[in-house]
């Protein structure tokens, strides 16, 4: 069975990435046709208007604007986005927080194939762009507590406002997310994954199995444990005590409001 052709656009200020991505697509995923390339956000906007691509490979950092800023200039986003970034770029956290597709430079073939596979599944389904819409809302939301974490589960996307999360408990390859009103969700991410995307949003890993939300700390009765708003008592690991105390003092003095996305 032949797969439907997909029209794609590459927006990146590095001509080397244009070449590399185009060649990798031609060689390994020829159904994805590169209809145009653009060197900046401004050129990208014009190319979107002119070529009406179905998938856009979008550089996170360009000289005239970021990829997110470019998307915010559009009235509608009737295409799928695959961000392109370097592995340790500051934006990677925002991309992962919002469960968006991305490739790291220089392009890894396995990552590329998986991203295209996910895009193909989403094409033609407008609601599948919800994570991107939510990401753009999150970027404008200054208060971390009001931001929405997006996680992919087998049942679909899970959207959880950060203020609703009391704590997260790790269990090998998945995590249990405890919410207000005694609700609970399961995410197929490790506690380490979640720690990485939440540690600048008022969350702290106080124990190998526990990530807690500063907004829900009721009391810090002993050096060994803390009480959360759902009345659970969570241990603070011996080697985390000092770091926890420093973090807790900072949170009390200066609660997290502004976020760097």
């Amino acid at each position: 069975m032949s797969l439907k052709r997909i029209r794609s656009l590459i927006i990146d200020d590095d001509p080397f990435i244009h070449n590399l991505l185009r060649d990798k697509l031609q060689q390994h995923i020829p159904q994805v046709e590169v209809v145009a390339t653009a060197n900046s956000g401004e050129e990208g906007l014009q190319a979107i208007e002119h070529f009406k691509p179905e998938v856009i490979f979008l550089d996170v950092e360009m000289p005239d604007m970021t990829g997110f800023e470019m998307l915010q200039k559009l009235n509608a986003i009737p295409f799928q986005i695959i961000f392109i970034t370097s592995y340790r770029h500051y934006a990677i956290k925002a991309i992962r927080f919002n469960a968006l597709d991305y490739l790291t430079k220089p392009i890894d073939l396995g990552e590329l194939k998986n991203a295209i596979k996910r895009c193909r599944a989403k094409l033609g389904n407008a609601s599948e762009n919800n994570p991107l819409k939510q990401a753009l809302i999150n970027l404008k939301t200054k208060n971390a507590a009001d931001q929405t974490l997006i996680l992919h589960t087998q049942e679909g996307s899970l959207h959880i406002q950060l203020s609703q999360i009391i704590r997260i408990e790790g269990e090998r390859n998945y995590s249990r997310i405890y919410l207000v009103n005694q609700k609970k969700k399961i995410a197929s991410k490790t506690l380490k994954d979640l720690e990485e995307i939440l540690d600048d949003k008022g969350f702290f890993r106080c124990h190998k199995s526990h990530l807690i939300n500063a907004r829900h700390i009721l009391a810090y009765p002993t050096r060994y444990s803390l009480m959360l708003s759902d009345q659970t008592l969570i241990p603070v690991a011996r080697r985390k005590r000092e770091a926890f105390r420093d973090w807790h003092d900072r949170m009390v003095d200066n609660p997290v409001k502004t976020l760097t996305q």
């Binding site: 200020d13 590095d14 080397f16 990435i17 590399l20 950092e61 370097s86 770029h89 430079k105 220089p106």
Partner: peptide, 9 residues
């Protein structure tokens, strides 16, 4: 940052 992917390649 801009050169880095090509240099890695």
């Amino acid at each position: 940052h801009q050169m880095s992917p090509q240099l890695q390649f």
